[in-house]
Write a protein that binds this DNA or RNA. Structure first.
Length: 828
DNA sequence: TAACTGGGCGCC
DNA sequence: AGGGCGCCCAGTTA
């Protein structure tokens, strides 16, 4: 018997916010069905608490749809997974989530065109030629309209706003968190018979009988891969049409409820409802306040399904299917890590905050006292303020022949008398600093770290100017650190732990002064293969001396952390790929003189041959803060794609880049190959991973300048950065699969591009770090095994953290050392 | 008031 | 013409 066609459906949720960990929940679930219909379900939201009034039967119906689908398509599956998990959990149900049947258009969008926009609207334009933006615009209008009425009529409602504890990610733009509001306001309006509060319906058909006005076609920019907007699932142009198959549809339910509300209000039993009022209720049901969200959401799920149809075909046509299937593991790993969360030490944070506040105050007093005569009364918490600029560089102003003085000539005339006879003047400040550079966009004098360093290096010791600049630097550092701490505090939640008190039900109790954060990880957040992190960003936690915020993060009581980082992976990749013999030898024989495995030392020897001849590997120490440090700076600048001038400046050696390129011609040739490929095809590919697809790598689009050329530094950088991150993604997948087998107490909690952090139960005994050593060895070897598949040896360095992320003890495996016993290990 | 831009800075 | 991010504050504009 022929197998029935696959049941491929899409799923999308609308939520009361994006902060799932702080109470945001889904209130609208929509399925896109293969025939172009929807099934959806909408729950009320309690406007005073923002709690979703879910229905258990609906949840079971949703689970049934998920269970019976052969493939479930999402735009960002991770988000809907968290959203549904939240509501199922509150309902006391366990969500069964079929990661193996999930398809994700967000991942597909990145794989097909890494530097294009991957939001649903943009991709529908690019791949379907359909614009669904109008639904969002309509929703925005309606939400803002309802919010206005609600603020006035229902002041006790909890509308979204920056600063509410349940939405720490909220910035200024929050209307999307209130997409439940129009319907809630509509119900309240009906209940109070205040139909006059409903704004006039916009001209056009009521949304429930949706016309074909969604079919207009916007022409997006042409894809380099063909003309996807001309192609639909069946080969013809796909139109996104939403019809309402009301399988789970609750309009009848809503209608009944609204009548009930109205009847209660009228004090009747329901049989004496005036026709007029019934008409009002019916009309209200067709009003955008009741339909805008539903139209928006249902269009999204249908569009997602249609989009997937095109993307799936393109992925297969372009030979990217194997890579895609592997990429599908990423949202799963990211979701598990996000759920695990990162633990933070509250008392540590408080201590640091107090210290920064003291130091900041001291610095501010210094600055203000030195520049009070120029009107400086306060310092900006970041960046520069006009007052600071004026105090540092003096004031530029204009004066009219009429005597009026003003800061900004605006249209070139005097604001008082309109005369155009104005003259420019310059008033020196007491400090009167000489600008060392200017900002890119406005050309104002820069007051950034580099400028401050420059001033500190040149201004006379003990001068007011120098004291001011030094104090400004200290103030900045304290404020920056404090701003980060504020963010962590805004996002963190009390850390709870199951408490075994002998009761049948496990309770949880808070761990005193410990908290947990759930940073969001986005595997498609960059133009390369790097992941991004946000809310808060866990990838930019300071390591700076005196401001090391990594002291805040670490293992909670009864736990320990292990970090594992790929050593020099971005230097190893080009060396091994190009097969640059001298570099390969250095990396493969880290114990051999004269370089002892140090890439930096090799380059040092190229740039400073006499110094190296004299000191050998000792050069590291002899020139620790000078020539050797500058060599490292230059090496990193080169990885990041620096051109001649910048690289030479970083190395402090004229012609350095040229010398290095000559010394390592194969790497130079690799760079040229990448550039040529990028110019020809627009993409560079990562090194193929034998465990995924030995023939091809992940294509990374290289941005072209206005003149249509690829910047020469970009291709090698993208290639290396993306290959490194592909290695990391693969390592994360393998590690998480292993961790799953060990159980939920063994967690991966952080990823910082080439570093992973694991959170384990604390070991016991006189040397507690030995307890988990077998597992750590296993993870290290799993990570290193990923290098085999790209032909680059990728040793992983491991550190043990018993107190905090900032304090690590290197674990040195002595395996392989000539004079060591096998399987010996020590912590230094 | 809401939303945006610019400057600045943390990480790899 | 130095790659990739996210986030804060100050200041301006709609």
């Amino acid at each position: 018997m022929p197998r029935a066609s696959k049941n491929v459906i899409s799923l999308d949720t609308e939520t009361t916010g994006i902060d799932h960990w702080h109470g945001a929940e889904p209130f609208f679930i929509t399925f896109g069905l293969p025939d172009g219909n929807n099934e959806f379900c909408e729950w009320e939201v309690d406007p005073k608490t923002r709690r979703v009034l879910f229905d258990l039967d609906d949840l079971r119906a949703i689970q049934a749809r998920i269970d019976e689908a052969d493939e479930l398509v999402f735009q960002n599956a991770k988000f809907d997974f968290h959203a549904l998990t939240t509501i199922f959990r509150r309902a006391g149900l366990e969500l069964r989530w079929p990661w193996e049947r999930v398809r994700d258009t967000l991942l597909a969008g990145h794989l097909l065109a890494s530097n294009h926009s991957h939001d649903l609207t943009s991709m529908c334009v690019e791949y379907l030629g359909v614009n669904i933006q109008k639904h969002e615009n309509r929703l925005e209008r309606v939400v803002k309209e309802a919010a206005k009425v609600a603020r006035r009529e229902f002041p006790s409602w909890r509308l979204a706003a920056k600063g509410l504890p349940e939405m720490p990610s909220a910035k200024e733009k929050v209307w999307k968190y209130d997409s439940w509001l129009p319907r809630a306001a509509g119900r309240a309006v009906v209940a109070s018979l205040r139909f006059d509060l409903l704004p006039d319906e916009p001209v056009g058909l009521p949304a429930v009988v949706r016309a074909a006005d969604d079919h207009d076609v916007s022409i997006g920019r042409p894809s380099k891969w063909g003309n996807p907007w001309k192609v639909g699932r069946d080969g013809s142009r796909r139109e996104v049409v939403t019809k309402y198959a009301e399988t789970i549809l609750n309009t009848p339910r809503l209608l009944a409820e609204l009548h009930e509300l109205r009847d209660k209000r009228l004090g009747c039993a329901g049989n004496c409802a005036p026709d007029l009022c019934h008409g009002h209720v019916l009309r209200a049901l067709c009003h955008p306040w009741f339909t805008a969200l539903r139209d928006y959401a249902n269009a999204d799920s249908v569009a997602t399904l249609a989009l997937w149809g095109v993307q799936e075909r393109l992925l297969k046509e372009r030979g990217l299917w194997a890579i895609y299937l592997r990429c599908l593991k990423k949202p799963w790993v990211a979701a598990v890590m996000e759920r695990n969360g990162v633990t933070a030490n509250g008392s540590q944070l408080t201590r640091m905050r107090e210290q920064f506040a003291r130091e900041a105050e001291e610095a501010k007093v210094t600055c203000v006292s030195l520049a009070a005569c120029d009107g400086l009364t306060d310092l900006p918490k970041s960046g520069v303020s006009n007052a600071l600029k004026r105090a540092m560089f003096g004031r530029r102003f204009w004066r009219c022949t009429c005597g009026q003085e003003f800061d900004d000539p605006a249209d070139g005339s005097c604001p008082l008398c309109d005369s155009r006879v104005i003259s420019s003047h310059y008033e020196r400040s007491r400090l009167d600093l000489e600008p060392v550079s200017h900002t890119e966009k406005s050309g104002a004098p820069a007051v950034d770290k580099a400028a401050i360093e420059r001033w500190l290096a040149t201004l006379p010791e003990g001068s007011d100017q120098r004291r001011f600049v030094a104090a400004l630097r200290d103030w900045r550092k304290c404020c920056t650190a404090t701003n980060y701490l504020d963010g962590y505090e805004r996002f963190w939640l009390p850390l709870n732990r199951p408490c075994d008190d002998g009761a049948v039900m496990t309770r949880t109790v808070p761990v005193p002064s410990w908290f947990i954060l759930h940073p969001s990880l986005n595997p498609t957040g960059t133009d390369t293969l790097r992941w991004s992190s946000s809310n808060p960003n866990a990838q930019n936690v300071s390591k700076q001396e005196g401001f090391g915020l990594r002291f805040v993060f670490g293992p909670a009581p009864g736990r320990e952390w292990w970090s594992a980082d790929a050593q020099n992976i971005e230097l190893r990749i080009p060396a091994f790929e190009a097969n640059e013999p001298d570099l390969v030898r250095v990396f493969e024989h880290p114990d051999e003189p004269p370089y002892f495995g140090s890439y930096h030392l090799v380059v040092f020897a190229v740039l400073h041959p006499e110094k190296f001849a004299k000191h050998g590997a000792e050069s590291k120490r002899v020139y620790e803060s000078t020539w050797y440090q500058w060599t490292k700076n230059g090496n990193f600048a080169l990885i990041y794609g620096a051109q001649d001038v910048t690289a030479d400046a970083a190395y402090h050696v004229p012609g350095a880049r040229e010398m290095i390129w000559r010394r390592f011609p194969r790497i130079a040739a690799l760079s040229d190959r990448m550039l040529a490929a990028a110019e020809r095809t627009g993409v560079v590919e990562t090194i193929p991973d034998r465990s995924v697809d030995s023939k091809r790598g992940y294509p990374i689009l290289c941005t072209r300048s206005e003149r249509g050329r690829v910047l020469p530094t970009v291709p090698l950088n993208y290639h290396v950065q993306s290959t490194a991150m592909q290695w990391m993604s693969e390592a994360m997948i393998r590690c998480q699969e292993q961790l799953d087998r060990w159980g939920s107490e063994f967690k991966m909690v952080l990823q910082v591009h080439d570093e992973l952090v694991f959170d384990f139960p604390r070991g016991r005994g006189p040397e507690p770090w030995r307890t988990n050593l077998p597992k750590i060895r296993r993870l290290k070897s799993l990570m290193e095994s990923c290098g085999d598949d790209i032909g680059v040896p990728t040793p992983v360095a491991v550190e043990y953290h018993s107190e905090s992320w900032a304090e690590g003890k290197a674990w040195t495996s002595t395996v392989g050392r000539a004079n060591a016993r096998r399987n010996d290990a020590e912590i230094v």
